[in-house]
Design a binder for these strands. Structure first.
Length: 481
RNA sequence: CGGGGUGUAGCGCAGUUGGUAGCGCGCUUGGUUCGGGACCAAGAGGCCGUGGGUUCAAAUCCCGUCACUCCGACCA
């Protein structure tokens, strides 16, 4: 009985996932102190704890980018309208959501300036100036910045009018090289998501309908959230020489003829934080993958006023600090309050030290995901903590993968597709003839959009379930965030 | 952009037929506590989202507007 009441009290702080998943998500965002709504619609304040997660994502990805030769740059945030308009498809794709600057101080501007929704145009303009010879290639650039897109409906991390991201922009001498770059960066995102965010992803190519405006091919990694919806978690585009031609970016080739370079761009954003929340979180709050957790281990002293307890806790913090990100919570809150608070914030491991432990030279080590408690002698900590972090990460991945597998189905007829989609939110794999009409019909009839055409293709049937015509491509369909 | 819901203290909410604002948590100070959200005492904190209107009088009634939120549409 008492345990039930305790449980209830813990849970009432946030809405249960089963009751209302969307509300649960919003609760986590604000109550785990990740974001605060700002005074401008659709814009958020990313609070210290949320930003610390983003910084860890940045560090990790940045290291990966640099390992493959990319360099960071900073582009202006404003784009002259005339520059933006040089590539027709891109303009049309983004026109509805561009914010414009029309005044400089009190003077109207001669030409209005777009707040960047993405920076292809700026990079092209720059490449136009600095590229001369094939000897300058490849140029492998990346920038960390925020962009603005005037979205109609917004949700923290998933879709905000300003968001933080990185955008990689590269130009290459040959199409083959650019295509290899596109694939390399998609794999980079996939590896990061799977290894460090403990989140399995489906790698594949977007359909014509879903591809980036102006790209020749768009590739994505698609993750499945706990509620069965899909979240596009990273994209990589191959542009061919479309932008080069539109922006007149040229170089003198090996044969001394003027040539257009082949281009790529790729991006991942603070949306990844939303992905982490909805992939791993539970009714008690966040569960952070150790690789990006701002705090990996929190130490909670019990009866901190008793002789030796706080001293021992400090000593432990110093020792653990050598191999993990650790925080000692020596505030004067009650231990139970601290337990709940740090669980809400998703800290992977908790250590409790109290008077009873001091006598036995031990502490209590608790995993956030399973709440499993074990007594560990203090000498064992340097091996026990890394092992526990590692085990937790593996289990997070396994659970996320299991969720996806339990919610992924194959179908060969529309009756099957509709029955599956009506039963629960899921991924449905079918063959597809490649026509836009069938893609639109899938949305109209089953409420599903194409997520991507996975690299790991399967042959499920000979024909498209929508039109009955021959089909050779397998598509994953789902409900997207 | 369409439809629903909500705006009253930092958070969650109450406020009846209009009469000038309250509760819980949190916060501050002091004390006792401390192995799953401790307790006592004394305090601080509100232009009732915002702009108009009706009225002797508006948190309450009317109109506008803004924001948040959910469901659609839209969104690489």
């Amino acid at each position: 009985m008492e345990k039930m009441e305790n449980k209830k009290k813990l849970v009432e702080a946030i809405t249960a996932q089963e009751v209302d998943f969307a509300q649960w998500y919003t609760d986590i965002c604000t109550k785990a102190e990740l974001v605060e709504y700002s005074s401008v619609k659709g814009f958020v304040v990313v609070r210290p704890y949320g930003y610390a997660i983003w910084e860890n994502i940045q560090k990790n990805l940045d290291t990966r980018f640099k390992a493959t030769g990319h360099e960071n740059v900073a582009m202006p945030m404003l784009i002259p309208e005339s520059l933006l308009q040089k590539e027709g498809e891109l303009v049309n794709g983004f026109a509805p959501e561009v914010a414009w600057v029309t005044m400089g101080g009190s003077e109207p501007l001669e030409e209005r300036l777009a707040v960047r929704p993405t920076s292809e145009t700026l990079f092209c303009d720059h490449f136009n100036h600095v590229l001369h010879s094939y000897r300058d290639l490849p140029m492998l650039y990346n920038q960390w910045c925020s962009v603005v897109r005037w979205e109609k409906s917004t949700r923290p991390f998933l879709r905000t009018r300003e968001f933080w991201w990185q955008e990689g922009h590269t130009i290459h001498e040959t199409a083959e090289e650019a295509m290899a770059e596109t694939e390399q960066q998609l794999n980079c995102y996939a590896d990061f998501c799977e290894q460090d965010l403990c989140m399995p992803v489906v790698k594949g190519r977007k359909t014509e309908k879903e591809k980036f405006a102006g790209a020749e091919a768009t590739y994505s990694i698609e993750a499945m959230m706990k509620d069965g919806k899909a979240l596009q978690s990273g994209t990589s585009h191959y542009f061919g020489d479309k932008f080069s031609r539109a922006y007149d970016v040229t170089f003198a080739g090996r044969d001394n003829t003027l040539q257009y370079p082949y281009q790529t761009s790729w991006g991942a954003s603070t949306r990844l934080i939303g992905a982490i929340i909805m992939t791993h979180g539970d009714d008690d709050g966040l569960i952070l993958p150790p690789a990006i957790a701002p705090i990996q281990v929190v130490i909670i002293p019990v009866a901190a006023h008793k002789p030796g307890v706080l001293e021992k806790a400090r000593e432990l913090a110093e020792g653990i600090g050598k191999y993990a990100r650790v925080k000692l919570d020596d505030s004067d809150k009650a231990p139970g309050w601290k337990f709940s608070q740090w669980e809400m914030k998703g800290v992977p491991l908790r250590i409790e030290v109290g008077p009873r432990d001091l006598e036995k030279n031990q502490c209590v080590l608790v995993r956030r995901d399973t709440r499993e408690k074990q007594f560990i002698t203090l000498d064992e900590l340097p091996t026990a903590i890394p092992a526990a972090l590692d085990a937790l990460a593996k289990d997070l991945y396994a659970r996320a993968l299991e969720n996806r597998e339990q919610r992924t189905f194959s179908a060969t007829t529309m009756d099957e597709v509709k029955a599956l989609a009506a039963k629960k939110t899921c991924f449905i794999k079918t063959m597809w003839c490649g026509s836009l009409a069938c893609e639109e019909a899938m949305k109209a009839e089953a409420g599903l959009s194409s997520r991507n055409m996975p690299f790991a293709q399967e042959h499920l049937a000979d024909v498209c379930p929508l039109c009955g015509k021959p089909a050779t491509k397998m598509v994953v369909w789902g409900v997207a965030y």
